[in-house]
């Protein structure tokens, strides 16, 4: 059953056009011209209860704008949104009770308060029943190791600590859905791993629907079965992560160190994409030529010192998709 329903969603922003020079600045004081930017351009998708979805795209693709409309922060220009049956911007306060939000860049907590007081305050704001609050706190303190900084004011927390506090705060009132906007940004490897395992746990144990935006593809790889990829305000891909790998992972890269330069290497399906000294990066398509064929062809013609094959990284795949800027239909 779908818990989030988005249909033909649009959001446009009017941006005042800057005019050059002093004369331009004066002119725009009286006569201002606007550029209309479509941040979200006809997006539709639906998410089932209990799903964990990666919502990704480059900067300015419209990720945050979508999340902000789903959480009720922004009012859409047009289109339909239903979050567990509610229209978020019309029923902000009711919607707030069923969702949890973490913005990686900004804390949801009270800056000057000790962390525990922020929690107490949220308990009051969300009217969390006392026993529920106690159970959640016991659990979060254990999994997220909150005890080490529970009495420290939020402004003095390290980024990793703050993020842990923030995610605990977002889950205190047992939301059905949680929006995580870059929850691992700026975290070190250990902290990232910890955050991921926590997200996985709340999804599996509590059936919380998770919508996650991130720039870190390994977040997606480790957490999400499904990925919605957007660019320029449009959905480029919506489906399983495995499928995208299969379809776009056909090209691989062979790295060879040779004794000499490649003078002219023309072979169907192979392309020299980079060269540093004697090290060469060859992109090849699995369908046209196998790795062993390629290697034997190279060693026939050149003296090979070293050789390695790079697996397609999801990040590279995604970049390829953006660069081609084609909407992809895969089934």
């Amino acid at each position: 059953m779908s818990i989030i329903e988005v249909k033909h969603l649009y959001k446009e922003f009017k941006i005042p056009k800057r005019q050059e020079g002093l004369a331009g600045a004066l002119r725009s004081l009286f006569h201002r011209q606007y550029l209309t930017k479509l941040a979200v351009n006809d997006i539709s998708f639906s998410i089932d209860s209990g799903e964990m979805v990666g919502y990704i795209g480059p900067n300015g693709a419209g990720k945050s704008t979508t999340i902000k409309m789903l959480t009720g922060i922004l009012v859409p220009s047009s289109g339909d949104i239903r979050v567990n049956g509610l229209i978020p911007y019309k029923e902000r306060q009711r919607n707030a009770r069923q969702i949890g939000v973490v913005f990686g860049q900004r804390s949801q907590l009270w800056w000057d308060l000790p962390t525990i007081e922020s929690f107490e305050l949220l308990k009051q704001v969300f009217q969390i029943p006392a026993d529920r609050y106690r159970q959640n706190m016991v659990r979060f303190r254990k999994i997220l190791d909150l005890d080490e900084f529970l009495h420290t004011p939020v402004r003095q927390l390290s980024l990793g600590q703050r993020m842990r506090a923030d995610i605990a705060a977002a889950l205190l009132h047992d939301p059905k859905i949680i929006f995580l906007d870059e929850p691992t940004i700026g975290l070190d490897v250990v902290a990232k791993e910890r955050m991921r395992s926590f997200i996985r746990e709340i999804n599996q144990d509590r059936g919380v629907t998770v919508i996650l935006t991130t720039h870190d593809m390994s977040d997606i790889e480790k957490l999400c079965q499904r990925m919605i990829l957007i660019d320029n305000g449009q959905v480029m891909y919506d489906g399983e992560l495995a499928k995208i790998k299969e379809t776009f992972g056909k090209t691989r890269i062979l790295i060879v160190d040779l004794e000499e330069d490649i003078v002219d290497f023309s072979l169907a399906g192979v392309e020299v994409i980079k060269q540093e000294g004697n090290r060469h990066w060859l992109k090849f398509n699995r369908d046209t030529i196998t790795a062993s064929q390629l290697i034997s062809r190279i060693s026939e013609n050149y003296n090979v010192r070293d050789i390695s094959i790079q697996d397609p990284e999801i990040e590279v795949l995604i970049r390829n998709i953006y660069e081609n800027t084609l909407p992809l239909i895969i089934d």
Partner: peptide
């Protein structure tokens, strides 16, 4: 500008 206002909109209390 600092985004503080965003968080007021995701709580069940009038902004």
């Amino acid at each position: 500008v600092e985004g503080t206002f965003d968080r007021f909109l995701v709580r069940p209390i009038h902004p």
